[in-house]
Every structure is written in C-alpha cells, then in structure tokens.
C-alpha cells in the first residue's frame, strides 16, 4: 500500500517537473499513473498528494489556466525550485560541508544533517579533505526541545513551557521566541516573556517539559538585525571587570587561563584576572579555597569574606 502511494508521488513529481506548461487536473488524472477510482476519490488522492509533497519540501505551483474561468487551475513544479542550487562548489567546499554535517553526530539535527549530506554527495563532486586540517567539530545539543524551538523562532510562533526557577519552583512561561544561541556549550532561548512583558533568557536544559507551539505563526515581529549571540553577550555576561587575585604558585590552573601575572612573592603570584559575572567568579574563587585570595576590588573581597563566614557558621 505504502509503495503504491510512493510510486504515485514519484510519478506525479516527475510529470510536474517535466511539463513546461501548467497541467490541469484532468490531464494529470488521464496521464499520470496511479490515479484510479471515482472522480471524487481521484480528487481526494490528488489533494492529499499535493500536501504530502509540500511537506517534504516540494512546492507545487498553481496557476489559473484560463483567466476567464478561475475554477480551472493548472499545476507544475519549477525545476529551479525543486533542485539543489548552491552555485559552483569545489571539492574542498564539499569536504567542509561534510565536516559541518558530521558535527551533528547523535545530536538533535543528526538525521537532517545526514540527509543533507546525501544530497550534497549526489552532486557528484569528489570531496577533497586533503586541503583541510584534521578537524572534528561537534555541535552539542542534548535538548529534545531544540528542533521545535528552532521552528518557533523561524516561524515566529509563541511557545509555552515549564521552567525551573532559581528557587527550584516549576513556573509556566509563555514566550515569543526571538532567537536560539549557544555560549560556552550551553544553549539559550532568548525571547519576550509575556507574563513579565520583558526580554528574558532561558537555558534549554532548564525547560522541564516538551515545549508547546501555538498554532498561529508570524504574530510578533523581531528587528531584522537582531543577533542572538550579541544579545547573549550583552545580557548574560555584562559585568566584565578586572580583579587582582593572589594565586598560590602551582595552583589555580582554571583561573590562570588568560590571567596576567603582576608579581610573585615565592608563595603566591599576584595576578590580574578579568571576569564576566561577579557571582560566577566568586563561586570559582571559593572553589579554590586558600589557594586564591582577592586583593581588589574591595567590594569583591568583602563579598568573598562574607561568604566564607557563612560557610564557617553553616558548618559549626
């Protein structure tokens, strides 16, 4: 049954691609193999087939055959819209695209990446990996919500989901999704939170259920030059400050990355370290215990001391 159906879909696609003029339904039913039964059932089959082809990305163009009688539509598929048009591609470019597709191994868009690769390899251009360095990129997306959210972003569809708040309370959120972006391996959804009427950032890993997409699409607008990574950089990592921290020699490896050593007294190096979020920086400093001591700024030093006092009293 399924193979009869796909056979008909292939025949229809081939016929609509071959024609230079628009074919009427009766022509299609007369000439394309697979349309059987009463007129009514042929009609139903054809409507269904059109929707199905659209679903796999094949656009059937419809045009009125007779300007005087609009009820006689004609159909065809433009070869240019049907086929892969990426201009001239070199063997090196095919190799680069293969690497890009391989980056999805096991992740959310793995199947789409593979089918894209099959299409690229069908162009018959030999991939040239020799001109590339040995690379193995990886896109890390664990969340099953990635794909529906990407769809909602691109269709401008409202979404709702349950989100884990900082107090560990499960909250229902309704969001107009503006963008989806990752920083340091973590994926974020950026959008307007309708209940708060403000822009908010959500970590995909903290969305607890399957997101629900509203039916209507295109109901809000996003500035054309909205750039999700720029937004994340300016809202997530806003503080960008510099601290002077004494790090015990031979310790504090994670903090030394990118730090500048100002002086050394044999036991500690005095280092200049830049950080983006004070809260996260304090967490990191405390992780290092007595191997990291803040000299300045004073406010940072005071906050660390106060947290250390809380630690002592919580464990008394």
């Amino acid at each position: 049954m399924a193979s009869r159906k796909s056979e008909r879909l292939i025949n229809l696609t081939m016929a609509l691609l071959a024609t230079r003029r628009y074919l009427s339904k009766s022509e299609i039913f007369r000439t394309v193999d697979g349309y059987t039964g009463s007129d009514e059932s042929k009609e139903r089959m054809f409507e269904r087939d059109k929707d199905d082809l659209r679903r796999i990305g094949i656009a059937i163009e419809v045009r009125s055959l007779d300007p005087l009688f609009e009820d006689e539509p004609g159909y065809r598929i433009h070869p240019e819209s049907y086929s892969l048009e990426l201009g001239d591609l070199s063997g090196t470019e095919i190799a680069i695209l293969s690497l890009a597709a391989q980056a999805w191994r096991g992740a959310a868009l793995g199947a789409s990446a593979q089918s894209a690769l099959v299409k690229l390899h069908s162009l018959g251009i030999e991939s040239d990996f020799d001109s590339l360095p040995a690379l193995s990129p990886k896109v890390s997306v664990d969340s099953a919500n990635f794909l529906p959210l990407a769809q909602a972003v691109s269709d401008r569809t409202r979404v709702s989901f349950t989100y884990l708040s900082a107090q560990l309370i499960q909250e229902k959120r309704v969001v107009e999704p503006y963008g989806l972006g990752s920083r340091k391996g973590i994926w974020y959804l950026v959008g307007r939170d309708l209940s708060r009427d403000a822009m908010r950032t959500f970590r995909l890993a903290r969305i607890l259920n399957d997101v629900e997409l509203e039916r209507a699409s295109g109901i809000f607008s996003v500035d054309l030059d909205f750039d999700v990574l720029e937004f994340l950089d300016s809202h997530l990592f806003v503080e960008r400050a510099i601290a002077q921290v004494r790090l015990r020699i031979g310790k504090g490896h994670a903090l030394r990355n990118g730090a500048k050593i100002l002086s050394s007294d044999g036991e500690f190096d005095l280092c200049e370290i830049s950080y983006q979020s004070q809260d996260r920086f304090i967490d990191q400093l405390l992780w290092h215990g007595e191997d990291a001591v803040v000299d300045s700024p004073q406010e940072l030093r005071d906050r660390v001391i106060s947290k250390l006092n809380s630690l002592v009293s919580a464990h008394d």
Partner: peptide, 21 residues
C-alpha cells in the same frame, strides 16, 4: 528523466549545515 538533480535542502537540513559551519 527529470529526477537527475538532487532536491533542494529542506529547512532543517540547511539549519543543520549552517550551525555546523
């Protein structure tokens, strides 16, 4: 016949390649 060219990329396929790139 008319099927000699690979089909155009669907949106998910293009998105996968784009993010990989």
């Amino acid at each position: 016949q008319t099927l000699d060219r690979p089909r155009a990329l669907e949106r998910n396929e293009a998105l996968a390649l784009l993010l990989g790139l």
